[in-house]
Design a protein around this nucleic acid. Structure first.
Length: 588
RNA sequence: GGGGGUGUAGCUCAACCGGCUAGAGCGCUGCCCUGUCACGGCAGAGGUUGCGGGUUCGAGCCCCGUCACUCCCGCCA
């Protein structure tokens, strides 16, 4: 017979009188000398159990030994709580179980921290005892909602005729992109597998095979440095389709997101999602993943700057750079120290400095540089910036890229500092028309912005020969609250175009053959037009639940230095293992 | 690779200008308590101030180094 008849979250008034059995962990224990109460907890909830010496003396005797986190089973009758003793905070708060039989299934040491959401615990302690951390309602809720998202995604894609296909975890290293995690081959001395950064090539091959609607919830590995929203292994909802164009992807994903937001948060998203081109996003918000929960934008003052005396502005504008500014509404309250901090902030991001002007109640501008501007300049500035009393204008003058990459983050910094409330809980959008290529100063060559299999826009193919940097790609990102939640592209399916791309990227025929020969060969055998997208499941979960870190959506995440504090990995291996793999220990 | 923050009792934190016999809350242990649910009362245990070195009459506090965690830049097709 099963040890329990119910879970700790389900008993209600209508169960009163039933004899039931519960199992779970002891939460708080309240010993009144005569009467003992405990909160019995499992992942479904909490139920109060009462031990009464007058009614069931044996169970009462055993209950004296109970301590937090003991695993127990109890048998007893569900009873209505005496009036005035119900607990409205608990779904089970109208009833309690009067224990007739108590069995301690397993005692527990005192836990290193209390299993409650209210108790703050530093992250390294949580990670070391992750199995205890995962007992907390906070983490149980996160993992439950993560599961709901995957379930909704699978159900939705299944209904849309998609087929989940698994692809290899041991695969070929490709030097493009992120650093690979390598797995040495025992059979082939000196050769290595790589863990996949994504199933990119395999899903394209599945298109060639005729699996025209593929998806997979799969792990991806990238050996790069971590962030709050980046882990060395993360899970993608990976999708690829044949005979489609960008619009089909947007429609499919908008349908998926509608169901996810509805299913998890009971929220109706307005569809279709807004779109910004890469150009619009970067010039208005200084980011290719703009956070549209806040509306103030970068204002382009380059033309105005050409008319002013102030040398830094005028010369930057005349030499082809940009002068842009943001209006930090009501930012006049910032002290000089605050502004100095903001200046340091943009400098750390690569700006040469930060100019500022306060527009005062009196209608006067206050700023160390105000003397370099004519009254007409200032009037025009007020007009362009829509400045009102108590506003603070923050300027950066530099190359376009620097202006965007400094004012973009500054915009968010100012939002945070001013405590501006978001207009909405969720701002989703597509960023489209990414550039196909960018120039890598480090490698002194063109590199693909997305990946080398991304198709250029049809109308931009002609640009590939003359002005390749101007060519736009059929690539798109899904952005939620300023975080990239997914991205994809329509792929190249023609061998010729693919060859031209490789040439542009400085990958010669021989290199291409060695690295991607199997894909090029496959494309000779009837490759349909295709494209797809991958959504980050961990990030999606984080964003939906409003969490600060992706780690709170992963059962067993890594620390910032990619270690696991619980298993203490990575760890040393034996000489024998190394020998079998034909490896020598690296030197420190 | 670089910049910032943190590290003191099991947990979360405090300790003013370098004077401390290093405190508090929670937790823990024991005793008391029949309607609690952040139960209550009394008593108690618990510290290599991350680690190593230095300065000083004296270091949790200052200096140098190092380790761990964390946020960010670079990196992440």
């Amino acid at each position: 017979m099963s040890l329990r008849t119910h879970t700790c979250g389900e008993l209600r008034k209508n169960n009163v009188g039933e004899t039931i059995a519960l199992c779970g962990w002891v939460g708080s224990r309240r010993d009144h000398g005569g009467l003992v109460f405990i909160d019995l907890r499992d992942r479904y909830g909490v139920t109060q159990v009462v031990f009464n010496p007058k009614v069931h003396p044996q169970a009462y005797e055993v209950s004296k030994d109970l301590r937090p986190e003991f695993v127990i089973s109890i048998k007893g009758q569900v009873s209505e709580r005496p009036s005035g003793t119900t607990n409205s905070k608990l779904p089970t708060g109208e009833i309690e179980v009067s224990a007739e039989v108590l069995e301690i299934l397993n005692p527990s040491q005192t836990p290193p921290f209390e299993i409650q959401d209210e108790v703050e615990v530093s992250e390294d302690i949580r990670l070391k005892y992750r199995y205890l951390d995962l007992r907390r309602p906070f983490m149980q809720r996160n993992l439950l909602n993560r599961y709901r998202i995957s379930k909704i995604a699978r159900d939705y894609l299944d209904k849309q005729n998609f087929l989940e296909v698994e692809t290899p975890m041991l695969t070929k290293s490709t030097p493009e992109g992120a650093r690979d995690y390598l797995v040495p081959s025992r059979i082939f001395p000196g050769k290595f597998f790589a863990l996949p950064q994504s199933p990119q090539l395999f899903k394209q091959l599945l298109m060639v095979s005729g699996y025209d609607r593929y998806y997979q919830l799969t792990r991806c590995f990238r050996d790069e440095d971590l962030r709050a929203d980046r882990q060395p292994e993360h899970t993608q909802i990976d999708i690829e389709m044949s005979f489609i164009d960008e619009e089909d992807v947007f429609k499919l994903i908008e349908g998926l997101l509608s169901e996810v937001f509805k299913g998890v948060l009971n929220l109706e998203l307005k569809m279709p999602l807004p779109r910004l081109t890469y150009e619009e996003a970067t010039s208005r918000f200084g980011s290719d993943k703009p956070d549209l929960r806040y509306d103030f934008k970068l204002v382009d003052l380059t033309n105005w700057a050409k008319t002013v005396e102030f040398k830094i502005f005028r010369e930057t504008a005349e030499k082809g750079g940009k002068v842009k500014a943001i209006n930090a509404k009501k930012g006049a309250s910032f002290s000089l120290k605050d502004i100095e901090d903001l200046t340091e902030f943009v400098k750390s991001l690569g700006a040469k400095g930060l100019a500022w002007m306060k527009y005062e109640e009196s209608g006067e501008w206050k700023s160390p540089i105000v003397k370099f501007f004519l009254t007409t300049n200032l009037a025009e500035l007020k007009n362009q910036m829509k400045a009102e009393p108590e506003d603070l204008i923050l300027f950066v003058a530099d190359k376009k890229e620097v202006v965007h990459s400094t004012l973009g983050p500054l915009r968010l910094k100012v939002v945070e500092k001013l405590g501006i409330k978001p207009k909405t809980d969720f701002a989703l959008l597509w960023v489209v028309d990414f550039p196909l290529l960018e120039y890598s100063e480090e490698e002194k060559k063109f590199v693909a912005v997305h990946h080398p299999f991304t198709s250029p826009k049809k109308e931009d193919i002609a640009l590939l020969d003359k002005e390749p940097l101007k060519a736009r790609a059929k690539a798109y990102d899904l952005v939620i609250n300023g975080t990239e939640a997914g991205g994809g592209s329509i792929r190249i399916h023609s061998q010729d175009l693919q060859k031209r791309m490789f040439n542009l990227l400085g990958i010669n025929d021989q290199d291409a053959q060695v690295k991607f020969g199997f894909l090029l060969e496959a494309f000779k055998h009837g490759a349909p037009p295709h494209g797809g997208i991958a959504l980050g499941l961990d990030r999606l979960t984080m964003l939906l639940l409003g969490l600060k870190s992706i780690r709170d959506t992963i059962a067993f995440p890594k620390t910032q230095s990619s270690s696991c504090l619980m298993t203490e990995s990575p760890s040393e291996v034996s000489e024998r293992q190394l020998k079998e793999l034909h490896l020598n220990k690296g030197r420190e």
